[in-house]
Nucleic acid binder design. Structure first.
Length: 490
RNA sequence: GGCCCCAUCGUCCAGUGGUUAGGACACAGGGUUUUCGACCCUGCAACAGGAGUUCGAUUCUCCUUGGGGCUACCA
């Protein structure tokens, strides 16, 4: 009974949110977070998540740039529930709305030349008062207007801002009130007849049936203007929630100079989508507890507008990196097989690896090192010795472990032991080393360290026995021999 | 300059009209031990400042300071 009532009310007020990026060439992580919040809100409420491409600026908008957005959202699994709307295809609707505003007296023609406007602006003594249009054309008589029109003079359409004040309840910031005196008679339609952003957004949001606008903080001061358009059009504005922007470490708006900002870069760098969703989901929002790890389903279940932080957050690359390491450590080989292959191929093509490793090798290396890597590519980069013989040995390690009496002899003997063992496995490997250590009366470390250096070229890494097993008998024998030769010659 | 938003460890996120103000990343120290950028433990570290309300404010109000945003015939 109650449930049915709820359903009825839901069907009347189904939540419809949208992500409305302009295609500028990359998909910014800030934009992704906005998209994510919208998506989560839609999923949480059982509503719809829509995508609108704001491509009215033809100079900057290209189909490749649109594709970047589509690909990014697709990777993150933030697919819109309906076909994307392209703002550029809706210009007729925008103009229609503008004309309606003209007819109803809410807007007026402005014949002022750009020159006059800029002169007006320059006249203001340095910043004494903010520039606003002086309403020069507001009081033009009908005759004057007719004359200018018949003279073929171009005009822009301005919204006539009424007296009063606008206030709205922001889901994040609470009540926000702005005096209309602060609002310019801004332009709806340019002299060339094209709609401005301010108009287009409102008209599109109305037509798309948007009920909640979740967007960046930088739009707060646009909101009163847009509400004025809604009202002039006789429409009820949607609910607003303005999410604070993401900052760089210097507390300035996150931008290229801070490093990677596009989601594509993070994808290519080997971040998992789970990592990005987790990190971005918890950046500026929290379910009210102190968790750091959260998955997709929990996000949907718990996400709400009041949990959005009202202060801006700094994007911490160190923490995302750590988080990625967490997810990697918890991933099974089958979860990342495809991506590992991609990075292996890249490493091979770039010459980092000599030959493309086979899947058995990759899996063995992965199982050995997944808890130690922060990125998938680390496996073929920091730990490339898993796939190719070392061509140099760590200097400090050489001094410490190679330049000691008896080392080459020990290595030779161990090599023979390994060659003679029938099953080259963890236990047998350890057994050989432990036995020899006792027999020669040297600490196990005296054998382990040189072996590690010989087989990997470095002094750190996973446990030696596991590493040797993962490397395989042939490689171990080959590498020991190579190291012995190297020590003898150097 | 004007208008708007914001203010808890270096960073992210909790928290309460009375708390030893908590967790995570980072950092430092120690430990396990076969090494380590891996693991474990410990430590460091915050309520921006000033008034007011109150028996009592980190929490509520105001001011200051600081940071951010907007201020286009860009979006």
């Amino acid at each position: 009974m109650i449930k049915r009532d709820k359903n009825i009310s839901n069907s009347n007020t189904e939540v419809r949110v949208r992500f409305a990026p302009s295609p500028t060439g990359d998909l910014h992580v800030g934009g992704v977070r906005t998209a994510l919040f919208n998506y989560l809100y839609a999923r949480h409420t059982g509503g719809k998540f829509l995508l609108r491409i704001e491509d009215t600026d033809k100079k900057r908008s290209t189909s490749q740039a649109v594709q970047v957005i589509l690909d990014g959202l697709s990777w993150l699994e933030l697919e819109p529930d309906e076909e994307p709307i392209y703002q550029s295809t809706r210009i007729d609707r925008h103009i229609e709305a503008a004309n309606k505003l003209l007819d109803s007296g809410c807007a007026y023609r402005c014949f002022c030349s750009p020159e006059r406007l800029s002169a007006l602006r320059d006249e203001k003594p340095d910043g004494e008062k903010l520039y606003m249009y002086d309403r020069h054309c507001l009081n033009l008589s009908n005759d004057e207007i007719e004359k200018k029109l018949s003279d073929g003079e171009k005009y822009a359409l301005r919204l006539k801002i009424p007296e009063g004040e606008i206030s709205f309840n922001d889901g994040v910031h609470g009540n926000i009130t702005v005096s209309n005196r602060e609002i310019d008679d801004f332009i709806l339609l340019r002299r060339d007849g094209t709609p401005t952003y301010m108009l287009a957004v409102v008209v599109d949001d109305i037509d798309m049936g948007i009920t909640n606008i979740i967007r960046g903080d930088d739009h707060i001061s646009n909101t009163p203007k847009q509400i004025l358009i809604y009202r002039a059009l006789g429409q009820t504005p949607p609910e607003f929630a303005h999410v604070p922007l993401i900052m760089g470490p210097d507390k300035k708006r996150l931008s290229k100079r801070h490093g990677a900002t596009s989601i594509t870069e993070y994808h290519n760098a080997g971040y998992l989508l789970k990592t990005m969703i987790n990190y971005l989901g918890l950046l500026g929002w929290s379910p009210g507890d102190d968790r750091n790890i959260i998955n997709h389903e929990e996000l949907i279940e718990l996400f709400d507008i009041p949990g959005i932080q009202s202060k801006s957050a700094v994007f911490d690359e160190t923490k995302v990196r750590w988080l990625n390491g967490q997810y990697l450590g918890n991933s099974e080989y089958r979860d990342v097989t495809e991506e590992l292959n991609t990075f292996a191929r890249q490493a091979t093509e770039s010459g980092m690896l000599i030959t493309m490793p086979d899947s058995k090798q990759i899996e063995a290396a992965w199982m050995l090192l997944k808890n130690r890597v922060h990125f998938l590519k680390d496996l073929f980069d920091d730990y490339r010795y898993m796939f190719r013989d070392p061509d140099s040995y760590n200097n400090k390690g050489v001094k410490k472990h190679f330049r000691k009496p008896g080392v080459t002899e020990h290595l030779e003997m161990l090599k023979n032991d390994f060659a003679n063992v029938e099953s080259f496995e963890l236990d047998s490997i350890e057994g050989i080393i432990r036995n020899r250590s006792e027999e020669w009366e040297v600490s196990a470390g005296k054998l382990i360290h040189p072996l590690r250096l010989a087989c990997s070229g470095v002094t750190g890494g996973a446990g030696l026995f596991e590493m040797l097993e993962a490397l395989g008998k042939d490689a171990v024998i080959r590498r020991i021999q190579k190291a012995v030769n190297w020590i003898s010659n150097g």
